[in-house]
Amino acid sequence: MSRPETTPDPIRKETLGLLARAPSGRLAQLLPELPEHDLLRAPEIGTVMVRGRAGGTGAPFNLGEKTVTRASVRLPSGMVGHGYVQGRDKGHALRAALIDAMAQQDAEGVEERILAPLRDEEVARRKAIATQAAATRVEFFTLVRGEDE
């Protein structure tokens, strides 16, 4: 498995992140029928140790684990896809791996059918929270006391 570090493919990196964060139910709606594939790695549930940094920027430390599910597939075309997604939904990891493989042979179709809606929905979810947060933005004033004159 170990290969020299390759330059990240920014589009594939963004796609895999989007798929990892997507609600698994939504992914199942967008890809209801699984295309024909071979399993290179059957969906597997595990954890990843999440690290933080002391003081936010200093030495790393182990904060705690999170659940992650992964899968790898090969399409009949030979295209290989990998999925690493949050949570414990095996269907989510499998679909992420399939979409990763499909996106490498039909980038435009996958973008239009699956990735664009996921991205738009995520932007909308984030914006809704940011808007709520902005409504609680506060200005504090310190008062000058009379005896300070």
């Binding site: 990240p8 990843v48 990998h82």
Partner: peptide
């Protein structure tokens, strides 16, 4: 915050989810 991990089979890091902290 996003959680990123190096994926050996890809050879680069991807986001594997996001968590509240």
């Amino acid at each position: 915050v996003a959680v990123e991990m190096d994926i050996p089979e890809l050879g680069f890091a991807i986001e594997i989810g996001e968590i509240e902290v």
